[in-house]
Amino acid sequence: MPASMTHPHSHPQPGSDSRSDARPEARPEVAVRAPSALPRGGPASAYPIIDAIKRGETPTPRIHDSVRAEPVILAVNNFQLWYGQSKALHGITMPVAKGKVTALIGPSGCGKSTLLRSVNRLNDLIEGVRVEGSIDLNGNSVYARGVDVIDLRKRLGMVFQKPNPFPMSIFENVVYALRISGERNKKALADACEKALRQAALWDEVKDRLKASAMGLSGGQQQRLCIARAIVSEPEVLLLDEPCSALDPIATLRIEELIHEISSRYTVLIVTHNMQQAARVSDYTAFMYLGRLVEYGRTADLFQVPQLRETEDYVTGRFG
C-alpha cells in the first residue's frame, strides 16, 4: 500500500471529503475508529467501510435515490443468512427494480450468489442454513410460513454458472417446467418451446433438431437453452448466477446481448464477477462485500461517479 495513504483524512483525492459529507452518519463513525484498528502500527486504511466490515460491523449501505424511485418487484428487507455458525449475509436491504437488469458484484465470498439463491429458496437444500428478515416477491413474502416453495420457484427462473441441460432432447429441456406442471397439450408445448427459443436467440440454430439431445450443443448454445428453459413459463424474475463464467468470450458476448434483449420483458437479477459485464448488461448495480451491501445505484453512476471510494477502487480494479 502506498505510503501516502496513511490516513483517510490525508488522502490526496480532492473529492473524497465532499462525498463523505453527503452521508455524514455513515462515515465519520468509522473514520474515527480507523486508527485503533491498526494493531501492527501500519498505515491507516483508505477504506474505512471495508475495514468496518472486516471488524464485523454492518455499516449502512449507500443506496442511491435513483434506486428508490423505481417500482419494486423484489424487496429484500434486513435479510440475514447463516450457514451453520458462520453468517453469510448481514442484514441485506435492497429493492430490486421491476423490469430492469440488476447486477450483483463483489469479490468472491461476498454473498452475492447466496443472496441470489435465497430468492428462490435454493439454499433450503443446504443443511444448517438459517435465515432471518424477509424477501418479498411482488408483495408475497418468500420466507413466510406456509409458502409453497414449488409454486414460488415456478414464478422464478434461474440459470446457473455451468450450463446444466438435462440429458434429454432440446425440446424436452425447454418445456420441462411446463411438463412438470402437468401441461400435456402438444400444440401449447410446441408453441411455448418456439417462443422461448426465439427469445433466447437459439431458435434458428436448433429448429431443425429439436428432437436431438441437448448434450450435443456447444457450451454457449447450452447456456442459451438453459435461459430458454428458465423463461418458458414467463417468470416474474430471472435469476442469473454468473451465467457466462464457463463460456468463451464470443459465447459470453451472445449471452450478454441476449440478456439485453430479454430485459425488455423480464426483470433480471444477475450475479457476476466480471465488472465489465455488469457495466454492459445492467441498469442497476449493487456492490457487496463480505455479506454486506456497500453501495447500490444506477450502473452508470456506480461505475462513473460512485459515492464511496471503496466502490470506485473496486470497479476500477484497484482493490478486491
Binding site: G157, M158, F160, I180, S233
Partner: peptide, 17 residues
C-alpha cells in the same frame, strides 16, 4: 451433478420430480 438437481428444483420440480 448438483447443478442437475438444482436445475430441476429451480424450475419448480417437486422432490419426486
Amino acid at each position: 451433478p448438483r447443478t442437475q438437481i438444482e436445475g430441476t428444483l429451480a424450475l419448480g420440480a417437486t422432490w419426486w420430480q
